[in-house]
C-alpha cells in the first residue's frame, strides 16, 4: 500500500489533469462578461479565464498546506514523534512549489486583466505572504542546525494562527471574489465540472508529491542513522 501511494495518486492526478485539460480547452465555454444593459461582451477575462482553473486549484493547495503544516507541527510538538514533523516539512516543501505557481500564473493573469504584472491586490498579497512564511520555514529547516525541527514547527504554527489576521489585513478587493457569490459559485455549467475536476486532480498531485517528499525525508533520516552506525563501526572516516 505504501509503495503504491505515490504512483496511484500520481496516476489519478495525471488522468484528472488530462481530462480537465480537455474539459477546459474543448468543453468549457469562453468567459463572456455582461454589459450593464445585459448584453454579452468580451470581459477582460475571456480566454484568460482558462488560467483560472489551475491557478485557483494551486492556491487551494497552498492555503491547505499552511493548515496541514500547522496541525502536523502541533502534533509534533505534543508527541515529539518525528513522523509528524516529516509530514509538515514535506507539505511545506511542496507548497513552496504550489505557491510559486500561484504567484507566477497570478501575475500572468494580472497583466491582461489589470494591466500590470503585479499590483498589491489583496489575495495576491496574501498568497505572497503565506509563500514567504513557507520559504522562511524551509530556510529555517536548512540552516537552524539541531533545533531546526522545533523552530520550524513553531514558525508553521504561528503562520497558521496568523492566517486570519493576514486575511483581515488585506480586506476586500478587485480580485475575483470567493465565497457564496464569488467566481466559483457563478461559474457556468460547462466550467464548474472542469474547475472541480482540476481541483481534485491537483489535490491528488499535491498528495503524491507530499508522500514522495516524506519518503525522501525518511530516507535522509535513515542515511543519517546509517552514517552514525558506520562511524561507530569504522567504515566511514
Amino acid at each position: 500500500m505504501k509503495r503504491l501511494a505515490v504512483p496511484l495518486t500520481a496516476a489519478l492526478a495525471a488522468i484528472g489533469m488530462t481530462v480537465s485539460l480537455w474539459l477546459i480547452f474543448v468543453n468549457a465555454p469562453l468567459q463572456w462578461g455582461k454589459n450593464s444593459n445585459d448584453t454579452l461582451n468580451m470581459s477582460s477575462l475571456f480566454f484568460n479565464q482558462k488560467i483560472f482553473y489551475f491557478h485557483v486549484a494551486h492556491a487551494f493547495m497552498l492555503f491547505a498546506s499552511v493548515f496541514v503544516a500547522g496541525t502536523c507541527s502541533i502534533a509534533f510538538l505534543k508527541t515529539r514523534n518525528a513522523r509528524w514533523d516529516d509530514i509538515a516539512c514535506a507539505a511545506v516543501n511542496v507548497a513552496v512549489l504550489f505557491g510559486a505557481v500561484v504567484l507566477v500564473t497570478g501575475s500572468i493573469w494580472a497583466k491582461p486583466a489589470w494591466g500590470t504584472w503585479w499590483n498589491w491586490e489583496p489575495r495576491l498579497t496574501m498568497s505572497l505572504l503565506l509563500w514567504l512564511i513557507l520559504v522562511g520555514y524551509t530556510l529555517v529547516r536548512q540552516f537552524a542546525g539541531a533545533s531546526a525541527d522545533r523552530v520550524a514547527a513553531g514558525m508553521a504554527i504561528f503562520g497558521m494562527v496568523g492566517v486570519p489576521f493576514i486575511y483581515k489585513m488585506v480586506g476586500s478587493d478587485s480580485h475575483p471574489a470567493s465565497g457564496a457569490n464569488g467566481v466559483v459559485a457563478t461559474l457556468g455549467p460547462g466550467m464548474k465540472g472542469a474547475f472541480w475536476l482540476s481541483v481534485v486532480s491537483f489535490m491528488c498531485w499535491f498528495i503524491a508529491l507530499v508522500v514522495f517528499r516524506v519518503q525522501s525525508i525518511r530516507a535522509a533520516r535513515e542515511l543519517r542513522e546509517l552514517r552514525e552506525a558506520a562511524l561507530d563501526a569504522g567504515v566511514l572516516e
Binding site: F143, A144, S147, M155, F158
Partner: peptide, 27 residues
C-alpha cells in the same frame, strides 16, 4: 522572544531571526 529563545543555540540565529519574524509580523 519565542523565536529568539528557540534559536538560542543556533549558529546563524542573527540571520534567521528576521527571516522568521518579518513574514509573521507583516500584519
Amino acid at each position: 522572544s519565542v523565536f529568539a529563545a528557540t534559536l538560542l543555540k543556533v549558529r546563524s540565529r542573527d540571520v534567521l531571526l528576521p527571516v522568521i519574524l518579518y513574514p509573521l509580523l507583516v500584519p
